[in-house]
Design a protein around this nucleic acid. Sequence first.
DNA 1: CGGCATTGATTACGCATGTAATCGGAGTGT
DNA 2: ACACTCCGATTACATGCGTAATCAATGCCG
Lengths: 122, 122
Amino acid sequence: MPERISEAELAVMDVLWAEAPLSAMDVATRIDDGRGWSDRTVKTLLGRLLVKGVLAHEEQGKRYLYRPMVSRADYVSGESRRLVDRLFGGRAAPLVAHLAESQALSEADIAELEALVRELRS
Amino acid sequence: MPERISEAELAVMDVLWAEAPLSAMDVATRIDDGRGWSDRTVKTLLGRLLVKGVLAHEEQGKRYLYRPMVSRADYVSGESRRLVDRLFGGRAAPLVAHLAESQALSEADIAELEALVRELRS
DNA sequence: CGGCATTGATTACGCATGTAATCGGAGTGT
DNA sequence: ACACTCCGATTACATGCGTAATCAATGCCG
């Protein structure tokens, strides 16, 4: 079982996927202000992510620098698969069909999908 | 914020989306045996789903009969949107692109998508 | 009629999560 | 050298979830 990453932890991972390695404070300052988190909170999340093994830290002087141990692509794959398994019996096409039916796809999305399908076809 | 449905609760909802209304015991017997749940556990989950307002129950003699108050389609839409928002910046096409790149799409899926796109196009 | 069985309601309990505050040790300014 | 500060480590605490057990009311069996 791959270690799950919670919603709050994901915000931290997103920062480090965008730029790494970073110190704890650097991560905290890059977290979206809308979250309104204290830097203590960010530290706690970094600690939990270390324990889960999805982050590593290396000492740099007195600080630690954190970096992701799993790629964003791998994480995204896992979560996408989980959703498809839970809600669509493991089949991806119904997900797309559903998005289409529920008007979740814009004109631009559809055009993009068309190009994508053409590419997959070749 | 729509009430979230947890993983375990989803198993209960799936039973009731397939057939409703049902008594608590009927739900319990229909839950996949692989879960290994006692009927007490199912009862607890039914209770929590009632509190969340996603189930309703009507008295029938001494028992209650439970039925969903949200459609599976609505729930699935919400969860799909959450995933797309969290991981793909709200854009659906990148999700499909990702599924494609990570080999999560079979030949059949791609054919299905092609048909779907053609339909969306028309 | 009085205990047993059935079923909903209440309570339990450990782990995860969100959100911190406090403790303790290492450096820094004076 | 000492107080102050900066940072990681430890601890806190409320809520949600997974998984039940216990309590209470009610109907059934003998």
